[in-house]
């Protein structure tokens, strides 16, 4: 009944790196002994002289990337999200963000869908950490193709960029394949009653939620924001003005992520009810990716429930 195709977002990242390296000799890739997991091993196979495995040294890797950027290279420093944001947080803040160096951080295995490895490896705080650093751009693409587009956009952009990918295979969402402009939201579905704002893999759940709401007689706007920072304030302001409330959806903690970015902006500019779908203030646990998304409330049904509560209150 369901013919949806599933693909890895991290594969979109590495496929883009290969495309980039073919045309730009300054593109180099670093990894920290997780190349088979992040898929940068595919890059290494084609460009062994432009791939640097730093071993289990995420902190050193971030600074080496900073050094390569200072010498004019476009380094993509790759590791798991927990290590990029927490283990090497000081290095990203002080060696990359502060001097605004042209380093791209490719973070895989982000979110609860990292699955069996459990809470230690499920980055649910990385968006919060990265968007709090001045000069940092934060991209959270939603499927394989958007990951590919986001990676290429990051290479064209001058300055530090955090790119967030998952471990699992995620639904392909054709609605988000129409280009990639950093800082621009994508309007996936027009609607007047409520706005669903998604980032990352929640795009597919947002679209499903809009379908369910339509069956109940509500028209939901779906705004996909693969750029969490800088947030598209124009699209948000239009949503706050044009609909009765906003529901955000992210595969990340409700603390400091997309939900807070949206709520913070509309609270100051056009006070609007905002409800957040995301991981509540809790650590995850081991399990299969899809069952964890159910268990931690990251589904269309959760978005619908929040949307209905917004609509019933106003």
């Amino acid at each position: 009944m369901n013919s949806t195709e599933f693909k890895q977002t991290r594969q979109g990242y590495v496929d883009a790196l290969i495309e980039l390296a073919l045309v730009d000799p300054d593109v180099v890739v670093l990894d920290s002994d997780v190349a088979k997991a992040t898929k940068t091993c595919d890059f290494e196979a084609l460009f062994p002289d432009r791939f640097f495995n730093c071993g289990v040294q995420e902190q050193n890797m971030m600074c080496v990337a900073a050094g390569l950027a200072l010498e004019g290279f476009i380094p993509f420093a790759t590791t798991f999200g927990v290590f990029a944001s927490c283990r090497a947080g000081d290095q990203v803040r002080n060696a990359i963000a502060y001097p605004k160096l042209n380093v791209k951080i490719g973070a895989t295995h982000c979110g609860i869908s990292t699955g069996g490895d459990g809470a230690s490896h499920q980055a649910n705080e990385d968006i919060a950490i990265m968007r709090s650093f001045p000069n940092m751009t934060v991209l959270v693409p939603g499927d394989y193709e958007e990951s590919r587009l986001a990676t290429k956009a990051a290479a064209r952009f001058t300055g530090p960029v955090y790119l967030r990918f998952g471990r699992d295979k995620y639904p392909v969402v054709p609605e988000i394949h129409d280009g990639f402009a950093i800082g621009k939201a994508k309007l996936l579905h027009e609607g007047e009653d409520v706005t669903i704002v998604t980032t990352g893999i929640m795009a597919s759940e947002g679209l499903k939620a809009a379908g369910i709401l339509a069956e109940r007689g509500y028209s939901a706007r779906v705004l996909h924001m693969p750029t969490v920072k800088p947030i598209d304030t124009e699209a948000l302001l239009a949503a706050a003005r044009g609909t009765r409330g906003i529901v955000t959806a992210e595969e990340h903690s409700i603390i400091g992520g997309l939900g807070e970015a949206v709520a913070g902006f509309v609270a100051e500019q056009h006070p609007t009810m905002v409800r957040r779908v995301g991981v509540r203030d809790t650590f995850g646990e081991s399990g299969q990716a899809q069952e964890l998304l159910d268990r931690y409330g990251l589904r269309a049904a959760n978005i619908v429930a929040e949307a209905l509560s917004v609509l019933q209150e106003y």
Binding site: V64, A66, G67, L70, N94, A95
Partner: peptide
């Protein structure tokens, strides 16, 4: 050449630059 401050970062950054050269 390099923004430093929190200790231990400068040698790594220099190593990255040296690799670049």
């Amino acid at each position: 050449e390099v923004s430093t401050g929190t200790l231990g970062l400068g040698l790594s950054t220099a190593a990255g630059m040296a690799l670049g050269a």
